[in-house]
Computed example of a mutant assay.
Amino acid sequence: MYSSSSKSLWCFAGIFLVFLSSFNAFSQDRIAFGISGMYNFPLNSLGFGLRAQVPIAPRWYVVPQLKYAPAFNTIHEFYGGINVHFLLIEGNQRFGGFKRGGEPEKPTVYLAAGAEYNRWINYVETRQANSKQNNILPEVGIGAAIGNYPVRLFAEVKYNILWQESYGEVGLLFCPAYIKKNKNTRCPNF
């Protein structure tokens, strides 16, 4: 009834939701959710993604992610993984969407490191011996974000260490707790 790639996608979406629901009350009102578009530079492929951003300590965040590169790309693939972000520079926090006084806009800058499970859906053997239909890919990168508590724009560049390729991602983060409650909610600032 369902193809194996469709089953894999639903399985990882379920794991993602279980992962998110396992956090304690400490982070519950601080979790941000995001959508993104990605571009793999060496492959010239496009995709989209979903993520959550969960603070675990001052300046530290855990970021579970799902990404999908549709079949119109040369390589049709799915990713599910987790990154840890560390804030290098904490940017302006805009309350209610407005800058304070004449203060210039300052973005948040962070380092990212993690690993992703990769399912190459239309797998074919290549000259790259370390690529298979199912892969675990370590990655490192840097990102920046700007905006206010309810909505922030982010951009990241990451490097896949195993396959030695880079990709960029641009997206929006939404903090539902800030929208529901009041301005005193402490959503992540990037």
Rank of each mutant, 00 (worst) to 15 (best):
C187H: 09
N134Q: 15
T185Y: 10
G80T: 07
L87H: 01
N160M: 09
I142T: 07
L43V: 01
V157H: 06
P107T: 03
L153C: 05
A52F: 00
G91D: 07
P55F: 05
H76L: 01
G80L: 03
A115H: 04
K158C: 02
A52D: 03
F174Q: 11
N148S: 11
N24T: 15
V63E: 15
G143W: 02
M38W: 08
F16V: 06
P150F: 05
Y110G: 04
L162F: 00
A32E: 09
E125V: 00
G34S: 09
P58Q: 13
Q133H: 09
K7F: 13
T74L: 05
V170H: 01
P188Y: 10
A57G: 02
Q133K: 15
V151K: 07
F41L: 07
N182G: 08
C11A: 12
R100I: 09
W163C: 05
Y117G: 15
E103F: 12
N44Q: 14
L43R: 06
G91F: 03
F48H: 12
I136M: 15
Y117S: 15
L111A: 14
Y68K: 00
F154V: 04
E165H: 04
A52C: 00
P58S: 08
S45C: 00
I142L: 08
A25H: 08
A155G: 12
N44S: 08
G114W: 06
L9H: 10
S5V: 04
G81C: 03
